[in-house]
Computed example of a mutant assay.
Amino acid sequence: MKKLLSFLAIVGILLASNCTRITENNDPVIGIWSHISKDGGVTQKQDITVRQEWIFNDAYLGRYHTYHNKDLTIISDFKWVHKDSVYVISYPGLDKEEDIVLMTESDNGIILADSEGNILAIRE
């Protein structure tokens, strides 16, 4: 009898745990986005290539990287929210302002740009 009750308890736990479903997030922003720029100062003899990279995942989180030439200088997590047609990207723990961008299509491909048209990132 004790074995039967234990078995029924295990079956009940398994059935109850399978009832929850995680909603699937198919947002088009999910993936890798990047922006490359040149940074050359007055005292520098050579330009430095700065590459920023955002990796968006389906849990409304992501990873942000900054490379100077090929050296990784910043690595941080970020959160993102999609409200209407606007994406808000926040960087907790990093001294960086929120990015508020729209996804649009241009000659360069699909881009994330602010309300003034300045490109934040291009889809890879």
Score class of each variant (00 low, 15 high):
residue 53 E to Q: 09
residue 76 S to C: 04
residue 56 F to H: 07
residue 51 R to Q: 03
residue 79 K to M: 13
residue 70 K to Y: 01
residue 51 R to G: 00
residue 51 R to E: 07
residue 76 S to N: 13
residue 64 Y to G: 03
residue 47 D to E: 14
residue 70 K to C: 06
residue 77 D to G: 06
residue 45 K to H: 08
residue 70 K to G: 04
residue 58 D to N: 14
residue 69 N to E: 12
residue 57 N to G: 09
residue 52 Q to E: 11
residue 52 Q to R: 10
residue 55 I to N: 06
residue 59 A to P: 02
residue 68 H to Y: 14
residue 70 K to P: 00
residue 66 T to K: 03
residue 64 Y to M: 12
residue 70 K to H: 03
residue 63 R to T: 14
residue 69 N to K: 07
residue 52 Q to P: 01
residue 47 D to M: 14
residue 53 E to V: 06
residue 57 N to K: 09
residue 49 T to H: 02
residue 79 K to E: 11
residue 60 Y to Q: 08
residue 64 Y to N: 02
residue 54 W to R: 02
residue 77 D to K: 04
residue 67 Y to Q: 09
residue 55 I to M: 03
residue 59 A to T: 15
residue 54 W to E: 02
residue 69 N to W: 01
residue 77 D to V: 04
residue 50 V to A: 05
residue 67 Y to L: 12
residue 76 S to T: 05
residue 79 K to L: 15
residue 46 Q to D: 07
residue 47 D to F: 11
residue 57 N to S: 06
residue 66 T to D: 06
residue 71 D to F: 04
residue 73 T to E: 13
residue 55 I to D: 03
residue 49 T to V: 14
residue 76 S to W: 00
residue 53 E to W: 00
residue 61 L to G: 07
residue 69 N to H: 04
residue 79 K to T: 13
residue 73 T to K: 08
residue 72 L to T: 04
residue 77 D to I: 06
residue 44 Q to N: 05
residue 53 E to N: 08
residue 58 D to S: 14
residue 60 Y to A: 07
residue 78 F to P: 03
residue 75 I to T: 13
residue 53 E to Y: 01
residue 68 H to S: 06
residue 44 Q to M: 08
residue 45 K to R: 13
